[in-house]
């Protein structure tokens, strides 16, 4: 990874150039160049093993890329002396299996990083947590433990936890894949609201309905490459990439 001295000319909320990643001899990501524009919802779709979740985890360096650059606004995250923890605090992430902290109350799940990373006092953090929980319809559950909530409720807490940090970008890694079908709609509703409120979002999803309606652009990945990126209309109605056509015929 080389550190560039100057940010790229066109500012994007998140910009990736020439990103590659391998596990041993298995190449997962090959020379990915993509940006997430400020305020847009970018959906990443593709078959299992196509590298979309790995790409998402590279964006906040939960996975370390082998080569390439990642820029968050004017900050190069892949620079040798980048403050990765500070950058992560600016990027919210929601996981497939929620990953709430089971030994803490719902409220403490949301306030933990506010106090431990942002240095807010407990009361200030509590007020912010309750506001965020109210936005996802769960203020009444603040004192519960995550295990006492349904999967859909847990995922909404996880969204509130990420939003409480007031991130510049939100990453969603198959946020509804582990949910029972009847619980998916509430989580998607929260994500739609966020998108229409102007949050910059990168969303790995198998929910083609969500990608079609809520995304500004849809990126199709296969075999670790970015095969196609376009508006939902063009991706879903006028797909000309053979692998994309094949994928859509299987999932739609």
């Amino acid at each position: 990874m080389t550190a560039m001295t100057k940010a790229p000319a066109t500012p994007a909320a998140l910009r990736v150039t020439g990103l590659s990643k391998s596990y041993g001899s298995h190449t997962v990501l090959r020379d990915i160049t993509i940006d997430v524009r400020a305020g847009e919802t970018l959906c990443l779709i593709g078959p299992s093993g196509s590298g979309k979740s790995t790409l998402l985890k590279c964006l906040n360096l939960l996975e370390t890329p082998d080569s390439g650059e990642i820029w968050l606004g004017e900050t190069c995250l892949t620079a040798a002396r980048a403050d990765v923890d500070a950058a992560r605090a600016r990027i919210g992430m929601v996981f497939q299996h929620f990953n709430l902290f089971p030994h803490m109350s719902v409220e403490r799940n949301v306030t933990l990083a506010l106090t431990a990373v942002k240095g807010m006092d407990r009361e200030q953090a509590r007020q912010r947590a309750l506001r965020r929980l109210a936005e996802v319809g769960l203020a009444a559950f603040a004192d519960r433990r995550p295990a006492q909530l349904s999967g859909g409720q847990q995922q909404r807490v996880a969204i509130a936890r990420a939003l409480a940090m007031e991130p510049e970008v939100m990453l969603f890694d198959e946020a509804t894949s582990a949910l029972d079908p009847e619980l998916v709609k509430d989580v998607l509703a929260v994500m739609r609201d966020l998108a229409s409120a102007g949050m910059t979002m990168a969303v790995v999803t198998h929910e083609m309905g969500f990608a079609r309606e809520a995304a500004d652009r849809v990126a199709f990945m296969c075999d670790g490459r970015l095969a196609e990126i376009d508006t939902p209309d063009r991706i879903f109605e006028r797909a000309d990439h053979p692998r994309l056509r094949q994928f859509l015929s299987q999932v739609l």
């Binding site: 305020g39 965020r132 319809g137 510049e168 939100m170 009847e182 409120a197 102007g198 949050m199 910059t200």
Partner: peptide
Amino acid sequence: AVADADVPPTPVSATAGVQA
């Protein structure tokens, strides 16, 4: 909480952490 007892979420406000 039972699985189907989800409280319908209220719309997320436009100030929800957006610094676009």
